[in-house]
């Protein structure tokens, strides 16, 4: 489909969303265009996510509730994006659609060159596994399994052989600073540590996007800041992060903020109380 994007923010040397793009298995971090090493924008200019006219309606009996009202959004590789909005603004619904957990009522969604509406249930599962790394507010770790086993789960689904998995898991847990706690159970870890395990799990398959829903919502301020620092580092390594939050202080950590209100998306502007 030809690109009729109205809002091309960044460098428009970006290749258009391409329906014919081949499969990318555990995509290597993009280093085309800009380098992602320095303090400034790690945005590479390569568009990896594109939404046009995304609408979501919920039907309850005879009432229809319009949660998302025609959202347009583009995200480039290497961006650190915050979606800021109060509760009820539709931000969770937007996150679910980005994460391929929910299907929009109308609109187009392209991720890594694939049209999501065309994907089968099985293909969507694959996309969730390889392209998206979820970080939830309530951590969502399996309580009966160790940190190691939790981080391993998406790798099992990806079909990675055991030895490679072990290496990868250790690498990830080291990356988030939990090398000494690999065999601990979630109930033996603090909130911040659990969230870091969740982050390690999220990045284990080297996904295109790290998708975080109120990642600091269950943490105290200090721990929250620690997690944000980790996000910074990950972004500087070239990882694309999309973060949903209602807290403008958290949103301020990101490099780009879009506001969402009543199902509508607004770009930039002054940071008022959300």
């Amino acid at each position: 489909m030809a690109d009729n994007q109205a809002e091309i923010k960044e460098n428009s040397a970006a290749p258009a969303a391409d329906p014919g793009a081949g499969e990318r298995i555990l995509p290597i971090r993009g280093d085309d265009g800009k380098r992602a090493d320095h303090e400034a924008d790690s945005d590479t200019g390569e568009r990896i996510l594109s939404m046009r006219g995304i609408t979501k309606d919920y039907v309850m009996g005879s009432e229809v509730s319009h949660v998302l009202k025609g959202i347009d959004l583009d995200v480039n590789r290497g961006e650190f994006l915050a979606v800021l909005g109060p509760s009820g603004s539709g931000k969770s619904t937007l996150m679910n659609i980005i994460g391929c957990l929910d299907v929009p009522t109308a609109g187009e969604y392209w991720l890594s060159g694939r049209r999501i509406a065309d994907q089968s249930e099985k293909q969507l599962a694959r996309i969730r596994n390889r392209e998206i790394g979820f970080v939830f507010q309530a951590f969502q770790l399996l309580q009966k399994q160790s940190a190691r086993e939790n981080v391993e789960l998406p790798l099992i689904y990806a079909g990675m052989p055991e030895r490679q998995r072990k290496e990868r898991v250790e690498e990830m847990l080291e990356r988030v600073g939990l090398a000494d706690k690999m065999d601990y159970l979630p109930n033996q870890l603090s909130g911040g540590q659990q969230q870091r395990v969740a982050i390690a799990r999220a990045i284990s398959t080297n996904p295109t996007i790290l998708l975080a829903d109120e990642p600091t919502g269950a943490l105290d301020q200090t721990t929250g800041h620690q997690v944000m620092d980790l996000f910074h580092d990950l972004n500087e390594e070239g990882r694309t992060i999309i973060m949903i939050t209602h807290d403008r202080h958290i949103a301020a950590h990101a490099r780009r903020i879009v506001r969402i209100l009543d199902g509508n998306l607004l770009e930039g502007g002054e940071l008022e109380d959300a």
Binding site: R126, R128, N129, R130, Q140, L153, P154
Partner: peptide, 16 residues
């Protein structure tokens, strides 16, 4: 159900 939802979000196919 929460666990199932999580597994699906992490990429488990329905068959799995």
């Amino acid at each position: 159900t929460k666990e199932i939802g999580l597994r699906k979000a992490l990429g488990a196919e329905p068959a799995r």
